[in-house]
Simulated assay, not measured.
Amino acid sequence: MANFVLVAGAWLGGWAWDEVVPALRRAGHGVHPLTLSGLAEKRHVPVGRQTHVRDIVDEVERLDLHDVVLVGHSYSGIPVGQAGGRISDRLTRVVFLDSNVPAEGESFVSTWWEGPAKLEDAIAANGGLWAPVTAADCAGQGLGDRQIARFTAGATPHPGASLADPAVLVRPLEELPATYVKCLLDGAEPTDDVARLLTGPRWRRIDMATGHWPMFSQPQELARLLLDAAGA
């Protein structure tokens, strides 16, 4: 039996996995959707240095989980990649779901594709929070109207402190047993840092023919992929 720890990306809480969880549990596995501090029902919890990494490690240790399949989506690949090195004795695999990956001393903001200043300005203009995406931002990502409405209704502003938090790696990422899931509607190829990691023997790639939020657009297909990854 695996223990899936599911960490959604920016603006989302554990609720984002609601349509993925049942299939994993029916297969006999433990499933633990995690809401990070400052988001969803934890939106009033303060966020500082390494808070999201500690959220993940503390959850695994609090529940005394072993055979962990640690899943990080989008932004959450950064704290998940760091946490994976801290729970290596309990870890089966890390699944990076169309996600960023951490680099020592770098943050989500410092590697932002449009340049750090643009994201820093947006966060500062919104009181230190990154405003959620709108329905228009979801276009072309394989989401129907109902799925977009559910996503945007549940999304909460994301704490800027976590986005600017420099990564601290206690174990090189290439040493982690990892699966990278590329959602093809969000771009056919991963970023250069991910491509380099995929050349190593411990990393493998799987593609999904959907957009950046497959827990909404293809939850059953995502559940099957995660079950396959657990046995990899």
Score class of each variant (00 low, 15 high):
residue 152 T to H: 06
residue 192 D to M: 05
residue 208 M to P: 00
residue 159 P to L: 04
residue 99 S to G: 15
residue 49 R to T: 14
residue 113 W to Y: 15
residue 164 A to H: 08
residue 129 L to H: 09
residue 106 E to I: 00
residue 110 S to L: 06
residue 107 S to N: 10
residue 70 L to E: 02
residue 96 F to M: 14
residue 178 A to L: 06
residue 227 L to H: 15
residue 64 D to G: 06
residue 129 L to W: 10
residue 106 E to K: 15
residue 49 R to P: 11
residue 3 N to K: 02
residue 12 L to Q: 01
residue 206 I to N: 02
residue 110 S to H: 08
residue 4 F to W: 04
residue 112 W to I: 03
residue 199 T to P: 10
residue 161 A to I: 02
residue 97 L to K: 07
residue 13 G to P: 01
residue 115 G to S: 00
residue 140 G to W: 11
residue 88 S to I: 11
residue 181 V to W: 06
residue 226 L to T: 12
residue 40 A to C: 14
residue 99 S to D: 14
residue 214 P to S: 09
residue 129 L to N: 08
residue 45 V to A: 15
residue 112 W to V: 05
residue 70 L to Q: 03
residue 137 D to L: 08
residue 140 G to P: 02
residue 30 G to V: 10
residue 85 G to H: 01
residue 196 R to C: 02
residue 182 K to Q: 08
residue 172 P to R: 13
residue 52 H to Y: 11
residue 135 A to K: 15
residue 36 L to V: 08
residue 154 G to A: 15
residue 32 H to T: 14
residue 100 N to K: 15
residue 211 G to A: 04
residue 33 P to R: 13
residue 1 M to G: 07
residue 158 H to V: 05
residue 227 L to G: 09
residue 20 V to E: 01
residue 91 L to T: 05
residue 71 V to N: 10
residue 93 R to V: 01
residue 124 A to K: 05
residue 61 E to S: 06
residue 158 H to F: 12
residue 30 G to D: 13
residue 118 K to G: 05
residue 123 I to Q: 00
residue 149 A to E: 07
residue 124 A to G: 01
residue 114 E to T: 11
residue 211 G to D: 09
residue 174 E to C: 14
residue 6 L to A: 06
residue 184 L to W: 04
residue 182 K to R: 11
residue 117 A to L: 05
residue 167 A to V: 03
residue 27 A to W: 11
residue 28 G to I: 13
residue 171 R to D: 04
residue 6 L to K: 02
residue 217 S to M: 09
residue 176 L to D: 02
residue 106 E to N: 12
residue 132 P to Y: 13
residue 188 A to M: 07
residue 86 R to V: 04
residue 172 P to A: 10
residue 116 P to V: 02
residue 30 G to E: 12
residue 146 R to V: 00
residue 228 D to C: 12
residue 19 E to V: 07
residue 161 A to C: 08
residue 74 S to E: 03
residue 132 P to R: 14
residue 193 D to H: 11
residue 11 W to H: 05
residue 20 V to Q: 02
residue 49 R to H: 13
